[in-house]
Design a protein around this nucleic acid. Structure first.
Lengths: 128, 128
DNA sequence: TAAGTGTACTATGAGTATTAATACAGTTAG
DNA sequence: CTAACTGTATTAATACTCATAGTACACTTA
């Protein structure tokens, strides 16, 4: 499914969080779809189940998944609904990154193109 | 000038790197302007000079500043010229963040507005 | 030459990440 | 009812990273 970069400075559990978020956002993992179990994924990636659990706990705290004891962990169908603080945080990070991009010579036209490209490829279904 | 969040999980030297980049990108610090010395800033922020040096070394490796023994550290006038790898990296990060923003309901119009707003406030001098 | 500047090194302690081991609670199919 | 799955939690050990303290060297400049 994916791989962990053991040489990265980014902790393993954070790499997992990022990857699962990406799969959920890109709708590779669909609402209510089950995630691999903690033990199964641990074996596949050859890392400790507690580390997987650490990532899943973080994903749950960010509202991306929900977990049911005895059943498993699933994509939260309302994962695209985040609270105001999270939206603010994303916007702030975007402002910062766009400022840096413009400073480094990436043009606003290039930025517009990127937005259009992403909209096209995701169908823009949610934002209208 | 700025403050360090000791409670943050982000290392102190990384916070410094981020802050100086922001000041350079927003042209608060201008080309060839001198940065506070390692020892002076250490005293002001009450942290170790080696930690400041760690941040300055990172800024230098990212081409944002240059240093001269015996003289000091200065804003690199060509800091807005980054190599292709860096530009690619920024674009990739942008694609990811824009995808997440759209997924979370931030509209493309809002994104366009943000770009315009930033352009207006920075004079858009470099990108045209 | 003194007082500034950057740069580098070693050693130490604290915090974080990961692992290993174990155990408990819930679900489900047979 | 039970075995085999699921998630969740705890403790302890280890390794890594970060920050600090101390020290020293090289350069610049008034």
């Amino acid at each position: 499914m994916f791989e962990i970069d053991l040489r990265s400075r980014k902790p393993i559990y954070e790499q997992l969080v990022d990857k699962f978020k990406e799969l959920i956002i890109n709708e590779v993992l669909k609402p209510d779809e089950q995630l691999p179990s903690v033990r199964t994924l641990a074996q596949q990636l050859m890392i400790n189940p507690n580390t997987i659990q650490r990532a899943y706990r973080e994903l749950e705290s960010q509202n991306y998944i929900y977990s049911v004891k005895g059943k498993g962990s699933f994509v939260n169908p309302s994962s695209h609904i985040q609270n105001t603080e999270k939206i603010k945080s994303i916007k702030k990070e975007l402002m910062k990154l766009i400022t840096e991009a413009l400073y480094l010579g990436i043009t606003s036209n290039e930025l517009y193109s990127m937005i259009k490209e992403i909209e096209t490829s995701t169908g823009g279904g949610k934002s209208s």
